[in-house]
Every structure is written in structure tokens, then in C-alpha cells.
Amino acid sequence: MKTTRLASQRGTSTLITGTGGLGYEVALALARAGGRVILAGRNAAKGAEAMAAISAVVPGSEVAFEMVDLASLQSVRDLGTRLRARGQPLDRLINNAGIMSPPALELTADGHEMQFGVNYLAHFALTAEVLPLLRASRQARVVNVTSLAQHYAKFDLDDLRSEKGYHPGRAYCGSKLLQAMFARELQGRSDAEGWGVTSLAAHPGFAGTNLFETGGGVSRFVSTRVILPLLGQSAAAGALPTLFAATSPSVTGGELYGPTGFMQMSGSPGPGKYAKIVHDEGLRAEVWRRSEDLVGNRYG
């Protein structure tokens, strides 16, 4: 799969968080293949722009927008309530939206460090909210978009929310590690409980997206002006591992997919490697328990 040409996706319905960058590219590719796409984000104007852009490329495509602020668990619950009320089965959930390394500590509406809350906890909550719709599908998949940053996380189970001190990069890496752990654990829970959901993780390598806009300083300059031109790839190419995880018949539940080129930064999608800590079943189970406590919702 070297391009975004997919097998027909007619009859499928996909919910994607994020209206730009990777989320937009994934939505565009699925719409081109005939799939129904729901983009979810906090900015209605950007949502309208994304829908218009997709419709311009794919006239007659089924693309919709839903409002959700991932920095508010109540907003996530409201989205879940609206979708469940409609009762339409959901074939895929792509937990894609995120922020990276805001220089100063920011908190969500629920008092969580922003990257932990938006990148991980909101998606954990959203997946629980739409689980009944996923279970109603015969081919449900959940794809958590993680990052190579998971390999650099300094994990502290007792400091998931950076309460012991905030460091932008450390918090970002930790949030992406948690998404990877979530993807792996969700597959085990689905198998054990008979949910019928295939859970996967994907990472884009080093892709040129608007994620860098939340960062700043020298690191942003070096990343976007030096590393990206030499080793990175476009947002469209970065979306390929997510599309592979979401649509390929050859995936294995619980696994990670990403670029297979140099240092996994670019190239055609294929199997990737989790950070070693992701394979710790006991740790994953404890993170899951604590996450359920924080969102106030029990899976299943």
C-alpha cells in the first residue's frame, strides 16, 4: 500500500478525531474509497473547511462533522450520547487528534495535564462511549495513533498527569506511550469479553503536520526545517500506516503499524515495534483501572 488508493469502503462508517493533518488525510482517503466519514473536532469553522475540501475532491461524498472538545470529558460524553441516540453502527474509530509539547503547563477542564487529557484520556473515554456502536458492527476496528515518541517516555505510574513537575517533551512522550498501551490492552479486553473489536496502533513516522504548531523554540525549528526535509514525509504519506491499520485485511489485532523505512520515519506501512514496557500486562491493567476511575466510566 504505497498510495492512498484503497479497496472500496462503501457501506462503512468511520469516526475520526481531528479535522486537519493526518485526520484530514485519512478522511479524504476513506471518502475517495466510498466510505462515510465523521470528523470530530472543537472548531466548527475548521470542520466546515475540511468537509468542503473533501467534497470538492470527492463530489457526493458522505462526510459530516461533530463538535467535541477533547479537553473536556463532558464534551466527550455529550458526543457519545448524540451518536448512541442515532444508533448507527460504527465500523471504525480512529483516535487521532492530539497536541504536542505546549511550553507551559496547561490543564483540561477536568484538571488534567493537557497532553495526558487530550492525547490519551479523552480517547480512552470516547472509545468507551461508542463501544456499543462498535460492537454493533461486524468489522469494528479502533486505531490509536501513537508516535515513535513512546520509545522515549520516562514512565511513572504514579505521575500520569505530571503532578510532580511539568516537562513538555516528557508529558508528550508519556501520552503517546499510554495510547500504545491502550491499543494493546483494548485488544486483550475485547478478546476476553467477546466485544468483537479489533484494536490496533499506528504511528506516522516523522510527518509534516500541524502538530508542531503547539510546540516552539529551537526544537520546532530543527524538526520542521532540518529533520523533516531530510528524513520525514508528507502528512498524506504519514497517514498511510493509519489507513493500513484501519482497512488492511492482513493486520493482527493488538499490533502496531508504521513506516518501514529508515528509523521508521518514512516509507511504506508495515509492522512496527512497541516500546518494551507496552508488553507488561500487569502494568497495562493497572493503567486501565486508573483510567476508568478518572473518566468515571467502566467498559462493557
Results as ranks from 00 to 15, higher is better:
residue 45 A to D: 13
residue 25 E to D: 15
residue 222 V to R: 10
residue 251 V to R: 04
residue 58 V to N: 04
residue 160 L to E: 00
residue 64 A to I: 01
residue 10 R to Q: 15
residue 117 G to C: 06
residue 294 L to G: 05
residue 78 D to I: 05
residue 59 P to Y: 04
residue 205 G to R: 12
residue 36 R to C: 14
residue 289 R to F: 02
residue 143 V to I: 13
residue 204 P to C: 13
residue 12 T to W: 02
residue 68 V to I: 15
residue 192 A to F: 11
residue 173 C to P: 00
residue 225 R to T: 10
residue 138 R to M: 00
residue 234 S to V: 09
residue 153 A to P: 06
residue 97 A to Q: 05
residue 216 G to V: 09
residue 253 G to V: 12
residue 242 T to W: 06
residue 206 F to Y: 14
residue 138 R to L: 07
residue 281 E to R: 07
residue 55 S to N: 10
residue 86 R to M: 11
residue 247 T to A: 04
residue 207 A to G: 10
residue 293 D to Q: 15
residue 11 G to E: 15
residue 226 V to Q: 05
residue 194 G to C: 14
residue 272 G to T: 09
residue 81 T to Q: 12
residue 85 A to R: 14
residue 273 K to R: 10
residue 36 R to Y: 07
residue 57 V to C: 10
residue 243 L to C: 08
residue 165 G to D: 15
residue 171 A to C: 08
residue 200 L to E: 05
residue 24 Y to L: 15
residue 216 G to W: 06
residue 226 V to M: 11
residue 70 L to W: 06
residue 116 F to D: 00
residue 204 P to K: 10
residue 67 M to K: 09
residue 246 A to K: 03
residue 243 L to Q: 11
residue 292 E to F: 08
residue 24 Y to E: 10
residue 165 G to Q: 11
residue 160 L to N: 01
residue 190 S to W: 03
residue 271 P to F: 01
residue 45 A to G: 01
residue 34 G to W: 09
residue 123 H to C: 00
residue 138 R to K: 11
residue 157 L to V: 09
residue 46 K to M: 02
residue 203 H to F: 04
residue 184 R to D: 14
residue 19 T to C: 15
residue 148 L to V: 05
residue 10 R to P: 09
residue 229 P to C: 08
residue 224 T to H: 01
residue 3 T to Q: 10
residue 38 I to W: 02
residue 132 P to N: 09
residue 26 V to A: 15
residue 98 G to F: 01
residue 141 R to H: 07
residue 96 N to W: 03
residue 35 G to F: 06
residue 207 A to S: 15
residue 197 V to K: 10
residue 280 D to N: 05
residue 289 R to E: 13
residue 210 N to S: 14
residue 17 T to G: 07
residue 163 E to K: 12
residue 233 Q to M: 09
residue 293 D to V: 10
residue 122 A to H: 02
residue 140 A to D: 01
residue 55 S to V: 08
residue 51 M to A: 13
residue 104 A to I: 12
residue 54 I to S: 06
residue 271 P to W: 04
residue 124 F to Q: 07
residue 227 I to W: 07
residue 190 S to T: 14
residue 19 T to G: 09
residue 68 V to P: 02
residue 265 M to Y: 08
residue 99 I to W: 00
residue 160 L to Y: 00
residue 39 L to C: 11
residue 54 I to C: 12
residue 25 E to W: 05
residue 270 G to N: 14
residue 197 V to E: 06
residue 145 V to N: 03
residue 135 R to F: 01
residue 223 S to E: 10
residue 74 Q to Y: 00
residue 98 G to S: 01
residue 298 R to N: 06
residue 177 L to T: 01
residue 100 M to K: 01
residue 88 Q to C: 08
residue 218 V to E: 08
residue 299 Y to H: 00
residue 84 R to A: 14
residue 226 V to R: 07
residue 280 D to P: 03
residue 63 V to F: 00
residue 208 G to S: 13
residue 125 A to C: 14
residue 177 L to F: 05
residue 72 S to M: 08
residue 219 S to M: 12
residue 227 I to N: 00
residue 54 I to W: 05
residue 281 E to L: 09
residue 214 T to Y: 15
residue 201 A to K: 06
residue 124 F to A: 01
residue 27 A to R: 11
